[in-house]
Each structure stands twice: as structure tokens, then as C-alpha cells.
Amino acid sequence: MCVAVPGKIVEINGDTAKVDILGNIYEANIKLVSAKIGDYVLIHAGCAIEVLKKDMAKEILSLFNDLEEEQNEDS
């Protein structure tokens, strides 16, 4: 039930925004975040709950990088 999906803000009207999720446009409440047009946000139950700080794919790559550094420190 805690599923949230990333979407890109394409338009803002007060407390609501139009968000592009995989090419479909949805309305979402943005009162819980400080977001601007172009930001990627996580949408859960019609609300943006956080602005995403990094691209997910890049994040995963950097995770592996960090893991290697840690392991080198261990050994």
C-alpha cells in the first residue's frame, strides 16, 4: 500500500501539479514538497511525497561504486 512512483512535474497550479508518469499526465497535490516545474517527484495516493534528488539509474551505479570502496577499506 506504500507504493510510490516517480513522475515529472510539467505544470503547477497552486497546491496541485500536473505530473507526467510514463507519458501519462496525472494531477497530484504538491503541498508536502517544495517542487518546481521539471522536478521529479515520488507520487503516492495522489500526493507528491518527496522530490527525487538523483536519477535512479545513476543512483544504482553509484551504489556499486560505494560498495567497492567500502570493501577495499575492509580488506
Partner: peptide
């Protein structure tokens, strides 16, 4: 209103 912390702020809204 069922949920964990992910959903609870939306009930507050």
C-alpha cells in the same frame, strides 16, 4: 484511514 507513515501525511492534508 489505513496506512503507515507514507500515507498518514495525506490524511493530515
Amino acid at each position: 484511514a489505513v496506512g503507515f507513515e507514507t500515507t498518514i501525511p495525506i490524511y493530515a492534508l
